[in-house]
Amino acid sequence: MSFLSIANVSKSFSGPPVVNDVRLEVARGEFFALLGPSGCGKTTLLRMIAGFETPDSGTIAIDGEAMNAVPPNLRPTNMVFQSYAIFPHLNVFDNIAYGLRKLKLPKDQLRARVEAILATVRLDGLGGRAADQLSGGQRQRVALARALVRESKILLLDEPLGALDKRLREAMQVELRAIQRKVGITFLLVTHDQEEALSLSDRVAVMHQGRILQVADPRTLYERPSCREVAGFIGEMNFFHATLREIAGETATVNAGILGILTLPAVNLAPGMKIDDHILLAIRPEHVRFAASGVAGDVAASTFLGERSHFHVKVAGRSEPVFVSGSAPPAGAVHLEFTPEKLIGLPSDS
């Protein structure tokens, strides 16, 4: 029995479903990310878990308890809002103590608890600060502390770092991960930033048009995406149309048109592929090398990025360039070589 269980949940407002038959299992203590472009339904899903939206169908259960009929104020979840929703008329201390009223703690215990959480988010001594005197990063920490102090079962984070600038965002990523390890509760993060999802989470669900396309750990997601959308959404990827020719033991052979005949490990094919199927061959730019022989092309553009650089290589018979990541090639015409074991076969679009 998983800790957070989402079973066949659908939701539509007026029009096509925003969340479409979603199934998801999240374990206790997991740092889990919902990743997808804006409008993919990830925030709606999060709001259904928090109780702000009601699913049209399906059930949401936390720790074995069905949540559908439970109002937000009685759910064992707490949320860090994208806008942070810091109460403007309360200071930092009162914002954090807001959700502890019902516990009726004695004053010194309440103070100790708030101060402990302030220390956790590294806002020591700022309890008396007015809400409008906080920087963006501080607001984010107050929102986090206010949700964490209740010691709920699940913390929901709606694009929590989206409003911060790049440097602060990167620093907060490290810290968020450390805080999650320390408090040990389940974190469910919604983000459109693939880097954030991959670097923070134990597992990631990629959402697209209301559906979950793939759930996997970051490495698997990067190396073995299940479809073109996932592959394209996470990092750069080269795609080639190909036909599956033969599967012999652990090796598959494909005809990739201008790339010629290529072989790849059979396990790199998506399940259920048959001989003569049209497939989509995918490979990351860092697994394409400049070599003495291979597919001929011309470097059309390059971006210097330090140790490695990015190149757009124009290949005859193909309109899009091939993306290559590596060190600079010799001048003039180049040849491309593909690392066979890094080639993966995805279902064709059509």
């Binding site: 407002f13 702000f52 939206e53 009601t54 109002p71 937000p72």
Partner: peptide
Amino acid sequence: MPNKGQSS
């Protein structure tokens, strides 16, 4: 928007 939609 607490309970929007449902509790019109």
